[in-house]
Amino acid sequence: MYVYINGQYAKKEEVVISPFDHGFLYGLGVFETFRIYNGHPFLLDDHLKRLNAGMKMLNIDAAFNRKEVIKIINELLAKNGYTHAYIRFNVSAGNGEIGLQTESYSEPNILMFSKPLPPLNGMTEKKAVILEIKRNTPEGGERLKSHHYLNNVLAKREIGSAPDMEGIFLTQDGFLSEGIVSNVFWYNDGILFTPAIETGILNGITRRFVIALAREAGLTVREGFYKQEEAENAEEMFLTNSIQEIVPVTRFFGTDYPGREGNIVKILYKYYEAHRETLWSRTQLGGPAND
């Protein structure tokens, strides 16, 4: 497998990063993961916008645009022979002296790697459980998609490696927040609910896109602070992330749901499927509510 690193393409066994990189020493780095559908990087503009914002917060002096990143992606896909793929685009602060640095990082380490994914054939389903470990608060004003992943790692160890299971975090105050690698939605009585950003969750790219899709479909969407019981009483429940898309939940804390047979997930997935080989941003759906 070929990997992109700092302007070069190398076999994964040849990639080297200094142990003095502050991404390694202090966790100063951000990343994005997204899917390639038949050669198209779905919602790339949204991912780059979040990546650039994260780098700014970490004082990493870099920014990326669609044109330059597409060039990297296309070359990487060609070298690996992939058409449908997983992409991880990682920016770590770069080398520095030992000790916490207040100056900006002007030479970050830029890494992109891919792995092949089969074309999707419908939705996969999962069961969801409440985690004992609570969601930690963001390190700054909002949660970044950063190298700080211990909370998620400990949560994954809690539930084990079963691929059909997702753990759901509660906040310290007992409100639903998000999954280990997903955002959470449920539908009840004509309204689609999801925890608010203020609960400390990652504002997922697919989360934002699904909210936009739901509004396009005429659904009312509410973001707020919700207790576990409110999701338990829902008609449908599902998870979202950029690799797994929309993942219907079949069971949550003793409650059974229709899973992929649910009417709402069917509607949203149909819209999602129709756009995933063409859209660069959710804003292309149109309408001020989706900005």
Score class of each variant (00 low, 15 high):
17 I>P: 00
110 I>S: 10
191 I>Y: 11
241 N>R: 05
213 L>A: 13
154 L>H: 07
143 R>N: 03
71 K>G: 10
13 E>L: 02
181 V>N: 12
83 T>A: 08
95 N>K: 11
236 E>V: 01
54 G>F: 08
274 A>K: 14
136 N>W: 07
285 L>V: 06
66 R>M: 10
80 N>V: 01
108 P>G: 03
103 E>F: 12
12 K>P: 00
39 G>N: 06
270 K>S: 13
38 N>L: 06
176 L>Y: 12
90 N>Y: 10
150 L>K: 08
29 G>H: 06
170 L>V: 06
126 K>H: 04
192 L>Y: 04
177 S>D: 02
239 L>A: 06
203 N>M: 12
149 Y>G: 01
143 R>L: 05
49 K>G: 03
59 N>R: 15
251 R>D: 12
243 I>Y: 08
198 E>R: 09
4 Y>H: 11
189 D>Q: 14
109 N>S: 15
97 E>T: 05
137 T>N: 12
115 K>D: 04
57 M>H: 06
287 G>M: 03
214 A>I: 09
259 G>F: 07
57 M>R: 10
103 E>I: 01
158 E>A: 09
73 I>A: 01
239 L>N: 03
265 V>K: 05
15 V>W: 13
269 Y>I: 00
52 N>V: 02
18 S>Y: 11
37 Y>W: 02
145 K>F: 09
115 K>H: 07
198 E>H: 03
70 I>N: 15
